[in-house]
Simulated scan of single mutants.
Amino acid sequence: MNWDDALKIYDDITEACDGFERKGKKMIYTSSNGYMFTLLNKDAEIGIRLPKEEAAKFIEEHNTGHYYSYGAKMKDYVLVPETLWNDKKLMVNIFEQSFAYVNSLPPK
């Protein structure tokens, strides 16, 4: 998928979520409590931050892997397969789970 289409989908998901909004112009992300929790990288890939156990479960259930941005493995992030992107209800749920997770961490 090209970057512009991925950005449109990412924006559509974040607009449907409660409590946060998309940030950034070139590096697209969401953040709360001092932590980023979703990212759209330059390769048009969406990554989400989850607790370790939830991340492992997500990777197994969706046959995906860890998330990389600018060549670096992002700690606690998983790659969201494009096959899930058009399931808006699921994506909103995943983004909101990630939002709740970072808000459970000590503030930065």
Rank of each mutant, 00 (worst) to 15 (best):
D76G: 03
K52V: 05
Y70E: 10
E53L: 13
A44I: 01
F58Q: 07
E60M: 06
Y77F: 15
I48R: 00
M74W: 14
L84R: 10
K42E: 10
R49S: 01
I59V: 01
H62D: 02
W85P: 15
K73F: 01
I59Y: 02
L79C: 11
D43G: 02
E60G: 03
A55Y: 13
E61P: 03
F58H: 03
W85F: 14
A55R: 12
F58V: 14
D87I: 15
P81Q: 13
A56I: 10
R49V: 00
K88M: 12
V92G: 09
G71T: 07
K57M: 11
I46G: 05
E61S: 11
E54R: 14
H66P: 14
L40M: 07
A56D: 10
I46E: 05
A44Q: 03
L40T: 15
Y77G: 00
A56T: 13
K89Q: 14
E54W: 02
L40K: 06
W85D: 15
E45K: 13
K88C: 01
A55Q: 05
N41R: 00
G71C: 07
L40I: 05
P51K: 02
L90P: 09
Y67N: 06
V80F: 10
R49A: 05
W85A: 12
I46D: 08
R49C: 01
E45D: 05
A44C: 02
D76F: 15
G71S: 09
L90D: 08
D76E: 11
Y68V: 13
N63D: 15
D76W: 10
K88D: 06
L84A: 11
K42V: 09
H66D: 15
K52H: 03
Y77I: 01
M91L: 08
E61F: 05
P81K: 04
D87W: 12
V92F: 11
N41F: 00
Y67L: 10
N86I: 10
A56H: 07
H62R: 05
I46T: 07
Y67A: 07
E61V: 08
H66T: 14
M91E: 04
H62M: 04
N86Y: 15
P81L: 06
T83L: 02
L84W: 12
V80P: 04
A44L: 03
I59K: 13
H62L: 04
K88I: 11
K42L: 03
V92H: 10
A44M: 01
Y67D: 05
E82D: 09
G65H: 09
P81W: 08
E60P: 06
D43N: 08
K75W: 12
L84M: 12
N41V: 00
D87G: 12
E82C: 02
N41E: 00
T64S: 05
E61C: 08
E60F: 08
K57F: 09
Y68N: 02
R49L: 02
K42I: 04
H66L: 15
G47W: 15
P51A: 03
K52Q: 06
D43P: 00
V80Q: 13
N86R: 15
A56S: 09
K75C: 02
K89G: 14
W85R: 14
